[in-house]
Computed example of a mutant assay.
Amino acid sequence: MRAISAFVLTAAAILATALPASAAQIEAAVALAPQARLEARGVAVVVPTRVMCQNGATGSLWVQVTQNVRGDLAIGDKYTSSVPCTGDYHKVDVTVVSRTKAFRQGIAFTSASLNVYLPPDSSRIVENDREMMLVR
């Protein structure tokens, strides 16, 4: 039994040293504002986000808004294929259009996902979820 344990530990140590150095953590963050602005009588909502990704990387952002409107769900999402990656925080306003029914003033649940790629082979996904107040 001890021989098997020693073998497993040795194999794990060899595997750990074989991992590429590029597996280092990429700097990235995404934050949703506590409030978003309704547009076009609730057909859309402008969601303020702050993104940060490491200089030299490329980033994309996905935002989804879901709200209970009188027992039915108003749902919309938006994919932004490119966000600035300079190592600093940048404000990115994402306009989400409802696919079902109009959004209304009040609380909605919002999710943001920032996908960052750093050549040659490193990537990271960071997320932020929160309740958000939709206002006119």
Rank of each mutant, 00 (worst) to 15 (best):
V43K: 10
T100I: 01
I4D: 10
P119L: 09
A13L: 12
S123I: 07
M132C: 05
C85R: 01
G59E: 00
V135M: 04
T49H: 05
I125G: 02
L118S: 09
T80I: 09
V126A: 04
A74H: 02
P20N: 05
E27R: 10
G87N: 07
E131M: 01
V47E: 04
Q105N: 14
Q64A: 13
D121L: 07
L114C: 05
P20C: 00
N68Q: 15
V83P: 01
R130W: 09
N55L: 14
A11F: 12
A24H: 12
G106F: 03
R104M: 06
N68S: 11
T86H: 02
G59Y: 02
A3P: 09
R41Y: 14
T100C: 01
V8W: 10
P34E: 10
A102Q: 10
A28W: 05
F109R: 10
L9I: 10
P119I: 08
V96T: 04
R104I: 13
S22Y: 11
D72W: 15
T95M: 11
V8L: 14
G56C: 07
Q54N: 02
A6R: 15
D129R: 09
A16K: 03
V47G: 02
A28N: 00
G106H: 04
S82I: 00
R70V: 13
R41V: 11
S122F: 07
A18Q: 11
A28I: 01
P120G: 01
L9Y: 12
V96L: 00
I75Q: 09
R136A: 09
F7H: 14
V92G: 08
I4A: 15
D121S: 12
I4C: 08
Q105Y: 08
N68D: 15
C53W: 02
Q105S: 13
G76A: 03
A21C: 10
T66Q: 13
V47T: 05
E127Y: 13
G56P: 13
V51Q: 02
S113E: 10
F103G: 07
L38A: 03
K78D: 07
I75P: 06
N128P: 02
S113M: 13
Q25G: 07
Q54L: 06
V46P: 03
V69C: 00
P20F: 06
L15Q: 14
V8F: 14
A36L: 03
G87K: 06
I107T: 15
R50W: 14
G87H: 01
A74K: 02
V96Q: 01
I107L: 11
A74L: 06
H90R: 05
S22K: 09
V43R: 09
W62Y: 14
V94R: 01
R70Q: 15
P48W: 05
S82Y: 10
Y79K: 07
V126Y: 03
C85E: 04
S122T: 07
A40I: 14
S22R: 03
V63P: 00
G71M: 03
K101C: 07
M132A: 05
S82R: 11
M132L: 04
A112M: 04
M52S: 12
V65E: 01
A36H: 04
C53A: 06
M132H: 01
R99H: 12
R104P: 08
V69G: 03
R50K: 14
Y117K: 10
T110W: 01
A24D: 11
V45D: 00
A44I: 07
I107Y: 09
A6F: 15
G87D: 02
I75R: 13
I14E: 03
A74D: 07
